[in-house]
Simulated scan of single mutants.
Amino acid sequence: MYLALEVHTEDTLNAGEHALLEFGDSLQAYIHTCPSETQKNWNFPKAHTNKHAFADIRAKGATKNFNTKINEKLHGPLKDSYLLRTNKKNFAEQIRPSKIFESN
């Protein structure tokens, strides 16, 4: 929740870091309750990335400044062109803007 905020203050950053520490403690407690035969590796990128999130927010600003959420809708026209105007091979040449506008 804290990572998705568009505006941060020292209070929200500190609260987010505190919540992340609580989550880490809870995760460690859960890991210790898992049977040893499970052998799950809990050191995977999504679990590790959050450790750096608040330092990144302090350095770069809100996460909307360094993620792809805002551009997701921009892929629609490219996807439509790919699906409707190409044979799905060498598609970069087939969906050049000049070719798209010429055919309209």
Rank of each mutant, 00 (worst) to 15 (best):
residue 93 E to K: 12
residue 82 Y to L: 12
residue 1 M to F: 06
residue 62 A to Q: 11
residue 79 K to R: 13
residue 88 K to Q: 05
residue 82 Y to C: 03
residue 42 W to L: 03
residue 14 N to K: 15
residue 98 S to N: 07
residue 26 S to P: 00
residue 56 D to Y: 09
residue 17 E to M: 12
residue 102 E to A: 14
residue 68 T to I: 12
residue 54 F to R: 02
residue 72 E to S: 14
residue 74 L to P: 01
residue 91 F to C: 01
residue 96 R to P: 03
residue 77 P to Q: 04
residue 18 H to S: 10
residue 15 A to E: 15
residue 47 A to S: 11
residue 95 I to D: 01
residue 86 T to P: 01
residue 57 I to N: 01
residue 97 P to V: 09
residue 64 K to E: 08
residue 50 N to C: 07
residue 88 K to R: 12
residue 95 I to S: 02
residue 98 S to L: 10
residue 100 I to Y: 08
residue 98 S to I: 13
residue 52 H to N: 11
residue 49 T to L: 11
residue 83 L to K: 06
residue 12 T to Y: 00
residue 79 K to E: 08
residue 57 I to P: 00
residue 52 H to W: 00
residue 21 L to G: 07
residue 8 H to S: 08
residue 102 E to F: 11
residue 64 K to R: 15
residue 85 R to D: 10
residue 69 K to V: 05
residue 47 A to K: 01
residue 25 D to M: 03
residue 55 A to P: 00
residue 104 N to L: 14
residue 33 T to P: 00
residue 78 L to Q: 08
residue 17 E to P: 01
residue 22 E to M: 10
residue 23 F to H: 05
residue 20 L to C: 05
residue 104 N to A: 14
residue 63 T to M: 14
residue 41 N to V: 00
residue 1 M to W: 07
residue 72 E to K: 14
residue 25 D to Y: 04
residue 78 L to E: 02
residue 8 H to N: 08
residue 58 R to T: 08
residue 87 N to R: 08
residue 83 L to V: 08
residue 23 F to E: 04
residue 102 E to T: 15
residue 22 E to P: 00
residue 7 V to C: 03
residue 28 Q to W: 03
residue 40 K to R: 07
residue 58 R to S: 09
residue 3 L to S: 07
residue 69 K to P: 00
residue 24 G to I: 02
residue 32 H to W: 10
residue 65 N to D: 09
residue 25 D to A: 11
residue 84 L to Q: 05
residue 81 S to A: 12
residue 85 R to V: 07
residue 19 A to Q: 07
residue 21 L to C: 11
residue 50 N to D: 03
residue 3 L to N: 03
residue 8 H to R: 06
residue 67 N to C: 15
residue 38 T to I: 13
residue 63 T to E: 02
residue 5 L to E: 03
residue 34 C to I: 08
residue 74 L to N: 07
residue 76 G to Q: 10
residue 35 P to I: 06
residue 2 Y to I: 01
residue 63 T to N: 04
residue 61 G to W: 13
residue 23 F to R: 04
residue 97 P to H: 11
residue 80 D to I: 01
residue 75 H to Y: 14
residue 56 D to M: 12
residue 56 D to K: 09
residue 63 T to F: 11
residue 29 A to C: 09
residue 10 E to G: 01
residue 100 I to Q: 05
residue 99 K to E: 13
residue 102 E to S: 15
residue 88 K to T: 02
residue 10 E to T: 06
residue 26 S to E: 13
residue 89 K to A: 10
residue 56 D to R: 09
residue 47 A to W: 02
residue 88 K to F: 02
residue 27 L to P: 00
residue 81 S to H: 04
residue 64 K to F: 10
residue 14 N to W: 10
residue 81 S to F: 04
residue 71 N to Y: 15
residue 43 N to L: 07
residue 67 N to R: 06
